[in-house]
């Protein structure tokens, strides 16, 4: 049985005249014990999907279920068995670390001791600060505390809305290690992130943009679906290079990607790449390097979402 299912969920915000479509017929399913990533840029509708699944928001149409319960009809059962960590830190800043944890344990009718094994790995890191007010913690610490509070009642499904946004690189890596350990305990995890590099850490990912689910697959399969060959080019004058490549007739797309340019051709044939190389060589590039590369999730994401930008 799937731990989470979404079936044709539609949600719009705003009044009659200026409606904003936040989620557009989204459907996907998350298996039990799976770590599922919802990957998309800001404003794609990730948080709206989280709020619908955690029973905070009612969809305009479509149905969704969490742990076998319908989000609209059985919301009380869902609230008992899910953990939710909103994107914004939302614990009581004027209560201490320990008081926050105790409070969330007691309102779920449990105690810290009862489920300590679940949070032990995480809690030991913030335990030295247990008498500090939550508002006075660093960003990474806050995230750890929020995760502890979301876990303290032993949820079967865990919702993490952009848990690593605004957290430093080291803490991000640590955080994903923790999620892996939680997954090993059989907790289903739905996590959203705007960072593509975190996507590969999930079992399966759904790419979302402008409220639409673009693809649902494993990270490896997702990049395999990349339709053409992908090339990377690098030179000292990147700006001129971008203009030259884009103006070459056979090129389908060209984007700046880190310190190099990623581009594709309309047709994969040797003629195109040779022709481009010849054209570029006639320009005055001192250290031009072009090679074929393996596409990553970000490439795929740009590729499938390109029509939206055009």
């Amino acid at each position: 049985m799937a731990a989470i299912t979404l079936d044709n969920i539609v949600k719009t915000y705003g009044e009659k005249d200026q409606k904003v479509l936040a989620v557009d017929q989204a459907s996907f399913a998350v298996e039990e014990g799976e770590m599922f990533g919802l990957i998309g840029p800001d404003g794609a509708g990730k948080t709206t999907i989280f709020r619908i699944l955690t029973t905070l928001l009612l969809p305009d149409s479509g149905t969704a279920s969490v742990a076998g319960y319908d989000t609209a009809a059985d919301y009380t059962q869902i609230r008992n068995c899910v953990g939710y960590m909103p994107g914004r830190f939302s614990l009581y800043q004027d209560l201490t670390v320990e008081e926050n944890l105790k409070f969330f344990a007691t309102i779920f009718n449990t105690t810290i001791e009862e489920n300590y094994h679940l949070i032990k790995d995480i809690y030991v890191q913030i335990e030295p600060f247990k008498d500090r007010r939550a508002g006075k913690l660093s960003g990474g610490m806050k995230q750890k505390l929020a995760l502890c509070c979301a876990l303290i009642h032993k949820p079967t499904v865990l919702f993490l809305d952009e848990p690593t946004t605004g957290v430093d690189v080291v803490s991000r890596v640590e955080f994903w290690d923790m999620l892996k350990r939680l997954k090993a305990q059989g907790i289903t995890i739905l996590v959203s992130t705007p960072y593509m590099d975190e996507a590969v850490l999930c079992d399966r990912i759904a790419l979302i943009q402008s409220g639409k689910i673009l693809s649902v697959d494993t990270p490896a399969n997702t990049v395999k679906k990349y339709p053409t060959k992908l090339y990377a080019a690098k030179a000292s004058d990147m700006h001129q290079l971008l203009k030259d490549i884009r103006s070459y007739p056979g090129v389908a797309s060209c984007f700046t990607f880190g310190e190099s340019l990623h581009f594709t051709f309309r047709q994969d044939d040797a003629q195109n790449i040779a022709g481009l190389k010849a054209t570029l060589d006639s320009g005055n590039y001192l250290d031009l390097v072009i090679n074929e590369i393996q596409p990553n999730i970000e490439d795929y994401f740009i590729q499938i979402s390109e029509p939206v930008h055009a």
Partner: peptide, 13 residues
């Protein structure tokens, strides 16, 4: 405003 109500609302309170 602080958002704590969000966390409260997903609990069985």
């Amino acid at each position: 405003e602080i958002g704590t109500i969000e966390q409260i609302n997903v609990t069985p309170i």
